[in-house]
Design a binder for these strands. Structure first.
Lengths: 356, 356
DNA sequence: GAAATGCCTGAAAACGTTTTCAGCAAACCG
DNA sequence: CGGTTTGCTGAAAACGTTTTCAGGCATTTC
């Protein structure tokens, strides 16, 4: 029956008010000690600091954000984490933001553009200071929403078309073209394209289509049988597709991949058919990961600088937030990594014996 | 000289107050329409809704968080994104949280325990409703800090020792032991351990040490030459280590890896020495990724359920936040995946010719 | 010795919500 | 018809900060 103060059991959570009371000053002074210590006289400052550590005070950034109207947090929208393609980019972003004192919120939309818009809206609700948007196909609603609410954002694309805002791009199509040019320069005249599923990922489709165009641009044939698309990225599907390529009539002397991962199944299937890579078939990747280094033979590929992309995107966004005007479009260079899976094509009647 | 209202150029950002004004009601009513529409009369409700869409109103969750004292966001602390080991777990967490209407903040500490504590503190400042902490070695300061500020948290470990709070664990040591048991059951009596660097990752060290113990537990020898540690995870270092193993005096008939990735370099080096995997040497991994599926021969390994781990951790944390008491320790089962890199050891005098 | 200057401090407003409380009108009950 | 309930509404407080403003006191300046 005695009057008990409610919620004494739960966290008392020291606030500036508590600090002010035990230090015998006003909350304004506490705030000043926190943010601008030399504005306050030495004795009071010490008293406040003692109170702060006695209470083991932790400031409330939510309240801070209310008054400053800045959260010092940014939101990252990424198509998916299911394939680890974007992970190095995310790591770089996290590192860059952490260094600048910004926190990072992440959302995946699993390639559902409507969900992407919803997540952007959520980031607006949460008062993010800026957004990093990954991927290249968005609803027109998205830039409209962001503009209406004056939300700074930078996109990171793997394609060059129509960036919405300031954009960091990898020239994914150019990269695969460069791979084909490399094969051509090595002397290959029968080049096939081996691609992962082209329906769900626009980037992959772009690579596939433009690779074919590039082959023809060199005046070479690229018959249907040399345009292979796997069912999915599993080893099983990859090997099945590889079988179709290797068993079909005339064999190519080189294969360009839309993604490095495909090289594993293709190489395995080659071996199973008794073909040696690269002697009987050259393989060149297009670099999503650094996996190519580990396989046998090490994969010649075109590396895409995902880490740079993330870092640059983060920096440009921070610049944008602080009022600067970063470049509208930044294209990062790909890099041909020559390893051992591609070589000049064997002479037609080359003896198969290694010596003599 | 004319008095101009300041900051008219910048975002007017509609608030409940604006909505209330144009709808001719009080802000309380607007709030009610937003959160509890049937509390307000139909005509006013319609007026408010019209005003809401006219202003294209987006609520401010920061303000909401201030009064409700809940952010509906959780923080994830992860050692590093540099290796993609934890990514599937993160993906599962993101998905689970998104479904529950929670946002996700991520921070990496790059295995610096002091930074980990700082990041936990930052999450407290930001009013996270709960924390998900990955990895197994923490400063004692960390649980103390979390307890003092009554921050709910769940840890996901890859080791079983001394969880701080409710914990989801993968029995990483048990998994590699199971791998060794499997080799033993196949008939192998000369088993080597092949490990990545054991200094920076406690988990790897634990696996390494306990694998040796397990081999000896079976009454088998495990001489120094059969305990190989690579310099790092690069292909170069892996192959160098593999050379040491293959060139050293008596060769093992089987090798257990502390991580799947090592299988690639080891297999390549075996081939270079003219040894066939698995005929001349069985290899068994310990599953960090699903990469084993892609390599040649497909890697027999022990799979660790990272996706389950993330999902379970997220669910337990949400339960904890809503006042339930999730189990103190949840150990998720590993799974032996039998592929083709391990088989019974060849008879000593087995003819090397395939037929006859 | 008065005025001006500078330093330090506290009261109060503000940020955008939700929620409590009390008030008012209409409806219901006897 | 009086009293009670019910349904709806708005004023105001609260959440934890930062910041503006004005005032107090000590020191300097003439």
């Amino acid at each position: 029956m005695a009057e008990v103060k409610p919620r004494r059991a739960t966290a008392p959570k020291a606030t500036v008010k508590d600090i002010a009371r035990t230090a015998g000053v006003s909350i304004a002074t506490v705030s000043r000690v926190l943010n601008n210590p030399d504005l306050v006289a030495a004795d009071k400052r010490r008293a406040v600091q003692r109170a702060l550590s006695r209470h083991d005070y932790i400031p409330n950034r939510t309240a801070r954000a209310m008054v400053s109207q800045r959260s010092r947090a940014i939101g990252l929208i990424v198509p998916t984490l299911a394939n680890p393609l974007f992970v190095p980019s995310i790591a770089a972003i996290e590192q860059e933001l952490d260094r600048a004192g910004y926190a990072l919120m992440i959302n995946c939309h699993e390639r559902d553009p409507a969900r992407e818009v919803a997540q952007a809206r959520m980031f607006i609700e949460r008062g993010m200071d800026g957004l990093l948007i990954t991927g290249s196909d968005h609803l027109p609603e998205l830039p409209a929403l962001l503009a209406r609410h004056r939300m700074p954002y930078v996109t990171q694309d793997i394609a060059l078309d129509t960036p919405m805002g300031p954009s960091i791009a990898l020239d994914s199509v150019g990269a695969l073209n460069a791979a084909i040019d490399h094969l051509h320069a090595l002397g290959h005249r029968r080049i096939a394209v081996f691609s992962g599923p082209i329906h769900d990922t626009p980037t992959v489709n772009d690579r596939f289509v433009s690779a074919i165009a590039r082959i023809q641009h060199h005046g070479l044939p690229c018959p249907e049988a040399w345009r292979v698309v796997t069912e999915d990225y599993s080893n099983h599907a990859t090997r099945a597709a590889a079988r179709r390529l290797l068993n079909g009539g005339e064999r190519p002397t080189a294969v360009a991949l839309t993604g490095d991962i495909l090289g594993l199944g293709l190489t395995t299937e080659c071996r199973a058919h008794g073909f040696d890579v690269p002697h009987d078939l050259s393989i060149i990747g297009c670099g999503d990961t650094n996996m190519g280094e580990y396989v046998d033979p090490p994969l010649t590929t075109v590396r895409m600088p995902f880490v740079d992309m993330g870092r640059t995107a983060a920096r440009h966004l921070l610049a944008l937030i602080s009022g600067e005007r970063p470049p509208k479009l930044t294209v990062l260079p790909y890099e041909l990594i020559i390893r051992q899976s591609a070589m000049a094509p064997a002479k037609l009647k080359r003896p198969r014996l290694k010596q003599a």
